[in-house]
Nucleic acid binder design. Structure first.
Lengths: 146, 146
DNA sequence: CAGGATCCCGCTAGATACTG
DNA sequence: CAGTATCTAGCGGGATCCTG
């Protein structure tokens, strides 16, 4: 019983790496914004843009739950709520409950959330500048392989 | 048979939205870089940084498969290969095969890949500047709830 | 050395139904 | 209106074995 070393070392390395990954701020941020709906919600609250499927030159900020739900057509209530909660938890949005007849809940970007929104706009800028090139490369590659 | 409209409209909206999502360049880019290993590989090839778990002040660019494998300790061969292939397909890295005794394969960032790497560094910058604040908000939130 | 091919498990998004 | 609760299927990703 001595040859276990190889597997053990790998497992050990993986643990270390996972721990490192969990600590890494960049990784955390990527995990956050890469979430399917985060960027969209931030975009919706941040101002607006060509993001929504319908028209909606929309309002700059502070939206109700139902507004967001309509704006991000494809989202399920579960994911919308879950995502909004996590964003609130991280201090990226505020949640305001107004006890009207049926309750009214509005969401708004914090300064922190707004600054993150700017980062995302940077990503968007790169995407719009270079993504067609990426797509072209992709097609070329596929053509060469096939 | 008339009340099907509600569900149908939702389904329709979802389809439209999915189509929109699939087209959106920003979404595509996010899907790309949010991939678990993409950012790490780009960081490894882009120059270096505090990313790797071991030390490794390492080489600036052009790494062999096995080097990457060691540098990104936790990655499985499958994911490493898969990710590298997709990056090559997108024209973000080049793959060079040198027919030495046992084959030698090196990967290197293209100009496009390098420019994307810069975007990621921007993300990293935000993370390092604000992520502690996010974490603090998170703890505070959890404390309030509990 | 650098992968290809398979099997298989865990997690999570999504659909559905219910509530204050 | 703005959620909560539950159940399930699909798939991303790791482990393992094999090859040029």
């Amino acid at each position: 019983m001595a040859t276990t070393t190889a597997a053990q070392r790998r497992a050990r390395a993986k643990e270390d790496y996972d721990a490192f990954m969990a600590e890494c701020p960049s990784r955390k941020l990527l995990d956050r914004i890469s979430d399917k709906w985060v960027a969209l919600i931030l975009a919706a609250l941040g101002s607006d843009g060509p993001h929504p499927v319908g028209r909606g030159p929309g309002e700059p900020r502070a939206m109700r739950y139902s507004e967001l739900s309509r704006r991000l057509a494809g989202v399920s209530q579960k994911m919308l709520t879950q995502t909004l909660r996590s964003l609130e938890r991280d201090g990226l949005v505020t949640r305001t409950v107004t006890p009207t007849v049926p309750v009214t809940v509005t969401y708004e970007l914090t300064d922190l959330g707004l600054s993150l929104h700017h980062v995302i706009r940077g990503i968007k800028a790169w995407a719009e500048a270079h993504m067609d090139e990426v797509l072209a490369n992709r097609e070329e590659y596929d053509a060469r392989v096939a």
